[in-house]
C-alpha cells in the first residue's frame, strides 16, 4: 500500500505540492493522469526517494520514506520517463548492473535476467549493445531493469511514450502480469485509453493537487454527464461559423457538439434545419475519461 499523508513540497518560495492525501491499495494498478506540470513526476520522485517531502509523510508498505528510505527503495521498482540505460552496454550488461545495485548476485541474477528478457521478448537480442535497439525495445529493457529485484511496488512514469503498438501491447501484458502477481503499480500517462484498459483506480491531478480519485465508473459518474455528438452533412460545408446554443467545434467537416443530449439537441437540429443543412449522420458517444479530464483541468495549453 502507498500512502501520501498531508504531503507538501516546496522549491524555495514555489509550492509544488500542497497537503496531498492519497491512498493506493496493495495490488492495485493505479492510473495517474494530469497535464504537463501537474505533479505526476514529482509524485513518482517523492515515492522513489529522489525527492523528500517538505512536510507530511510518504509511506510505502508501512515504511516511511523519510526514516527508512533505503529499505523502502528495496521494495520499489522505478521506471523513469527517460530511457535510463547505458547505451554502450548490452541489455544483459545493463540488467546485470542494475540488479547488482539491489544486491542480487550470481545464478539468481542470471535466472532473473533470462526470465525478464523472455517476458519482454528480447531474448535473441540480449547481447546486442543497446544503441542498436529501436525505441520500443529500449523502453521494454527500461521496464525490465526496474523489475529485477521483484519489487512489490512498481512506479511507471509514462512508460509508453513514442513506441509502436506492438511494444505498447507487450508493456500492457507485463503490467497485467504484475497485477496478477499482486504487485502495486502506479502508472502515470497522458493516454486515457491506457488508463481505461489497465487501471483499477485512477486519480486526476493538476497544479500539485489531486482533483479526483476512484474507479473509472466512479469518475465518470462524478462528471457533468456531457455527451459528445458528431453530426456529418450531405453537402460540402463552406461556412464553419455557426451560431449554436451549445459548445461545439469542427473536426474537418464533422460538427462535434458537447451537450446534454436531451436539452440541447433539438435546438441544434432546428438551427441546422433553418440554415438548410441536410444531416447525413448523427453519432452519440457516452461521457468518457478524456471529457472528464478536460472538464477538470481546462483547455488552456500547458508548458
Amino acid at each position: 500500500m502507498i500512502q501520501f499523508q498531508e504531503v507538501s513540497l516546496a522549491y524555495g518560495a514555489r509550492q509544488v505540492f500542497e497537503n496531498v492525501n492519497l491512498t493506493i491499495p496493495k495490488g492495485a494498478v493505479f492510473g495517474l493522469l494530469g497535464p504537463n506540470g501537474a505533479g505526476k513526476s514529482t509524485m513518482m520522485h517523492l515515492l522513489s526517494g529522489l525527492l523528500q517531502a517538505s512536510s507530511g509523510s510518504v509511506v510505502v508498505n508501512g515504511m516511511n520514506m523519510s526514516h527508512h528510505k533505503l529499505k523502502a527503495q528495496q521494495l520499489i521498482g522505478f521506471v523513469p520517463q527517460e530511457i535510463a540505460l547505458y547505451e554502450e552496454f548490452s541489455a544483459v550488461e545493463n540488467l546485470r548492473f542494475f540488479g547488482s545495485l539491489y544486491g542480487i548476485k550470481g545464478k539468481t541474477l542470471e535466472g532473473r535476467i533470462s526470465e525478464l528478457m523472455a517476458s519482454i521478448g528480447l531474448e535473441s537480442r540480449k547481447d546486442d549493445v543497446l544503441k542498436t535497439y529501436s525505441g520500443g525495445m529500449k523502453r521494454r529493457v527500461n521496464i525490465a531493469a526496474a523489475l529485477l529485484h521483484n519489487p512489490s511496488v512498481v512506479l511507471m512514469d509514462e512508460p509508453t511514450v513514442g513506441i509502436d503498438p506492438q511494444s505498447r501491447n507487450r508493456i500492457f501484458e507485463i503490467i497485467e502480469k504484475l497485477h496478477q502477481q499482486g504487485v502495486t503499480v502506479l502508472y502515470s500517462t497522458h493516454y486515457m485509453e491506457e488508463v481505461e484498459r489497465l487501471c483499477s483506480q485512477i486519480a486526476i491531478m493538476d497544479k500539485g493537487k489531486i482533483l479526483i480519485q476512484g474507479t473509472l465508473d466512479d469518475l465518470l459518474k462524478s462528471g457533468k454527464k456531457t455527451h459528445q455528438i458528431c453530426i456529418s452533412f450531405q453537402e460540402t460545408i463552406t461556412d464553419f461559423k455557426l451560431k449554436l446554443p451549445v459548445t461545439h467545434h469542427w473536426n474537418k467537416e464533422v460538427l462535434v457538439l458537447n451537450c446534454n443530449k436531451d436539452e440541447a439537441l433539438t435546438a441544434v437540429l432546428n438551427t441546422l434545419n433553418s440554415l438548410g443543412l441536410e444531416i447525413a449522420n448523427i453519432d452519440f458517444s457516452q461521457p468518457n475519461l478524456e471529457q472528464l479530464f478536460m472538464e477538470l483541468t481546462g483547455t488552456n495549453l500547458r508548458d
Partner: peptide, 14 residues
C-alpha cells in the same frame, strides 16, 4: 543528462 543518474538514486544505495 541521459537519466541513468536518476535511476541510480532510486536504488537502495547511499
Amino acid at each position: 543528462e541521459n537519466g541513468t543518474f536518476k535511476r541510480l538514486l532510486t536504488a537502495p544505495i547511499k
